[in-house]
Design a protein around this nucleic acid. Structure first.
Lengths: 347, 347
DNA sequence: TGTTAGCACTCGTGAATGTGGAGTGCTAAC
DNA sequence: GTTAGCACTCCACATTCACGAGTGCTAACA
């Protein structure tokens, strides 16, 4: 670790104390405060010298002369890395068990976002799983009435897609049966990526183009399968950012909140998170490190959860840089575990 | 109308001028401004006298002595009522035709919210239709695999519901067929309200309880049908409120934005709107009139659109009290018309 | 009788100024 | 290596002040 190179035990302790104090108060912290707060029994003057060093090394900064110091991104980074190393130690803290087993995944995730927001006092987001690598499990066409056919498609993880297809002339029962057979035998077990236009074309041939209708139906089916952009993102506690003065001036607030509303930016965050494979699946972006430019004054903590079949979703917490990393990381790990458990039990 | 009783032509003109000016500037407007702005050719002193009267009558208020006047809720109300009376005159103004025909209703509505937010610079919301009075059109059970049955239910307006039901032992094809027959013949064309527990119980009897499985499946089906809380609300342009200083202090912003995030409050707004049957379907809530307490410093304009089969959805615009009512009402009417058209063409 | 000019008065806004305190860096002594 | 002391910096906050926009009232005018 870098820390050992340039930071001795005492500097580390002082840095730790500075960050911790700043996390609580949000105000620049001065030498005298540390001198009293920490159990180092050093005078403020000594602390001042050390702080001077720490600043030179880039771990803390002074907003202006004659103000206390606040942690820099580098300082936070060190702090977080230290926390991450402490592995999952004990997770025995009680988080309200608001997570009843809701059987709709959507509801469950929404609730998860809310729980997390409540327990952390930051803004949170939860994404439904991405299913690009997902497998098709079941497909069926049925006549709703004379002019409409409904296509029902079930993917791994029991993700369901529907589409209503308008037809001019009713499909005969026989044809419908044949089509269903064909679709299921051909497509079953294939991943969405594998089902491309070429395959559909071949399917059409096999179906025999006696009827133009069938062609249309197949096209429509191809359509639905391809559209994999149905990742939903739920947010909660957006207004928590107003609790932190450094984020709640008009400018910042607007940026952050609009990032939350235009889910597109969050999508970016999700894909980034999913692409990086970490061992624990938890990532911390501090300040500029974040993939979402609108959040450059925040810290973002993300985690992935798994649904099986390679489907993964993301949880995220967005707050000020002086976030209570310890608590957040703990909550994240717990929620991650709970979701994993619930989904795997279900399957 | 009230106006004729206590307001003569001139007072009306002056009030109108005050409101209009205030809508633009957001600053209290003084007598001299009106004297110059309006074509009344009156001195500021005269205007002052009239304003004094108007204040006494409650149409305008003074934030503090030696400030100009701003419209009171009562003043806005009069103004809006006047606008509403002007019926739909001409709607020939060009609104960007961003409303491509998206075939997923959800997408369409999301887009609608966005378009509206862009064109008005206020915050907007759009609700998907409520289907409590909706009719069941089609229902079908199918085996996904040995342990899972999927129930697909199509309601009027092509609203689709799904549910995956876990079963211990596979249903025979024969049983499945029988069940489907039974469900369709019994439930088809009935409204959700009519399908109550009693009916389901009778169904169970008819199905014959050879198999416990069938009972469970029917229960699950009943479940899905009953749950009518799947009204979605999409919002857009929330951060537009930051454009209006009177709404963007921490306190107000937080209240409003959290109302937008906790969709529950918007739900309240929707149900209120739907319950009141106005001729045009457009309603304006000014300040305290709003059903959502968090928005008491705003004005809210709502409209309903129809999907046929008695299904109705809601559009809403939320902005400062000094909202450009004229423009908003126009936009509303247009969007309302467009949605109506699109959905009825589709059907 | 309605309109207007004039004037004294009010009050918020924003700039200028001053003060206190928190915090620093440096130096000299321990 | 640690600490006390001191001069210095600079923000935050309060105070003051001048300005200007706006009002209400009165008296004169058409």
């Amino acid at each position: 670790m870098v820390s050992e190179h340039e930071l001795n035990e005492r500097k580390l302790t002082i840095l730790h104390a500075i960050i911790k104090t700043y996390l609580e108060t949000g105000e620049p912290v001065g030498s005298r405060t540390i001198s009293k707060y920490s159990d180092l029994n050093l005078s403020s003057a000594t602390i001042r010298n050390e702080m001077s060093d720490l600043e030179e090394l880039g771990y803390i900064v002074q907003p202006h002369t004659s103000a206390g110091r606040i942690p820099s991104d580098k300082g936070y980074r060190l702090y977080v890395d230290m926390l991450m190393e402490k592995k999952e130690q004990e997770l025995n803290e009680k988080q309200e068990q608001m997570l009843e087993k809701a059987d709709k995944m959507e509801k469950l995730l929404k609730q998860a976002a809310k729980v997390l927001a409540n327990s952390t006092n930051y803004a949170t987001m939860v994404s439904t799983p991405m299913n690009s690598a997902n497998k098709l499990k079941f497909i069926q066409l049925s006549m709703v009435d004379e002019e409409q056919v409904i296509a029902v498609i079930v993917l791994g993880g029991n993700v369901i897609k529907n589409k209503i297809i308008n037809v001019e002339e009713p499909l005969s029962n026989e044809n419908l049966l044949k089509l269903n057979m064909l679709l299921n035998t051909t497509l079953n077990g294939m991943s969405i990526e594998e089902i491309n236009l070429g395959l559909i074309a071949r399917l059409k041939e096999q179906a025999g183009i006696h009827s133009e209708v069938i062609g249309n139906v197949l096209d429509a089916v191809a359509d639905v399968i391809q559209i994999d952009e149905d990742m939903q993102i739920y947010t909660s506690g957006t207004t928590n950012i107003f609790k932190y003065p450094e984020l709640s001036d008009k400018q910042s607030a607007q940026e952050i909140i609009s990032a939350f509303e235009e889910k597109q930016q969050l999508t970016e965050l999700v894909t980034q998170t999913l692409s990086k494979e970490e061992n624990t699946g938890i990532q911390v972006y501090i300040g500029d490190e974040t993939p979402v430019q609108n959040m450059k004054d925040c810290s973002v903590v993300t985690a992935t959860y798994e649904l099986g079949d390679g489907m993964k979703g993301t949880i995220g917490i967005i707050g000020p840089k002086r976030m209570d990393y310890e608590h957040v990381l703990k909550s994240m790990k717990r929620l991650q575990g709970e979701l994993d458990e619930i989904f795997h039990k279900k399957e």
